[in-house]
Write a protein that binds this DNA or RNA. Structure first.
Lengths: 196, 196
DNA sequence: GGAAAGTTGTCCAGAAGTTAGACAGGTAGC
DNA sequence: GCTACCTGTCTAACTTCTGGACAACTTTCC
């Protein structure tokens, strides 16, 4: 397949996912209709099926794209404070809190539990904690490289603390995002560098 | 034509013009070959002809796109210093000088004269001062709206001074871009607001 | 000065992708 | 249980892209 064809193909996929995102954001996944989606993307219904195969596949691709964007955004935040664990964790937590507030899809992904049947993820049961596990694994490698002086056990504890604490604040906010982020940063530093 | 088809079409045009720009930047317009262009864009030679019709048409589209980008960039620079004529002119001059230094195609457009047969514009004789006239006309409307207190005669003199003085410095530089831009700003203010 | 190589622009048959309409089967609301 | 709607599949027609061929012309090389 030539590069040009690939470009056209990804253009089509992006248009469809953009349109799907808007429709889901407006009325929810349950009310998303294939005909509406095709019209919104300026394409025939058949083309949607040729590209994605099924309605569920669109939901999966939508969630996947959002996950990737989320992780990329998180990496950018962390990279900005490279070398300062507390600041990096605070920036990461701030980013997660903001994303959860602004991006309904991300909040759904981050907070949906195994048996809680969130509408979009009713069929994607294994996905509920996939992002969390991916983020944790990915952060582990990231922290190991950036701060090699932290031993693996402390690193594991610190990452679990950072991710789950932040999600906890998304589910049940206690203070402002700014203050929460700072507190999470402080807690994680203490976990990563115990006094004894 | 559906919006999707339009997107695919403009994607094709952009890819082709991007590839053409690179080839022209590397070896010059004279050595640009249709076969190379098609390969670089990942498309068949016939598709290039279907889209643009001829080699000259590609040159024309290339120049046109660069002109538009240049004018858009110029507008952004001016908008950043809205209300301060001297700073706006200096910013505009700085932008033009930088563009001429970095973008060979723009320098060619800005400095090519009527009878000087610059390679890319050999066939586009009327284009040599088209950008200058367009920029002047466009700046006239811009300045008239932003600084209505300047009378039309002074406005016309000031704009001619700003554009031609800057181009003169592109052709024959006298000092650093920064210093030149400041001096042009000062000169234009004196032209626009004569003491008597 | 002329042959060889290269280039532009055109033509065409076939491949690939898109469209619109029809239809079977399933589901929700009444 | 009936109606209306929706998903997913099929198909014929249409549009776009491809790749190869070819004539006319220019450049390069001998």
């Amino acid at each position: 397949m030539t590069p040009y064809r690939q470009s056209v193909r990804s253009l089509l996929r992006e248009r469809l996912l953009d349109a799907a995102y808007d429709l889901v954001a407006a009325d929810g996944w349950a009310k998303m209709r294939m005909t509406r989606l095709a019209n919104a993307a300026g394409v025939s219904r058949q083309t949607v099926y040729t590209e994605f195969g099924s309605r569920d596949a669109i939901g999966e691709a939508l969630v996947l794209r959002e996950e990737e964007r989320f992780l990329n955004g998180l990496r950018e935040e962390l990279d900005a404070d490279i070398g300062d664990l507390r600041a990096a964790v605070a920036a990461g937590a701030r980013f997660m809190l903001r994303q959860a507030a602004e991006n309904h899809l991300i909040k759904t992904i981050l907070t949906s539990t195994h048996n809680g049947n969130e509408e979009l993820l009713a069929l994607l049961t294994t996905r509920s904690d996939r992002l969390v596990r991916t983020a944790e694994m990915w952060l582990d490698a990231y922290v190991a490289e950036t701060w090699p002086m932290i031993d693996p056990a402390s690193r594991s504890l610190a990452i679990e603390t950072a991710v789950r604490l932040t999600i906890s604040h998304i589910v049940q906010p206690a203070a402002s995002a700014e203050e929460t982020a700072e507190r999470v940063g402080e807690i994680v530093v203490r976990v990563a560098f115990p006094s004894r």
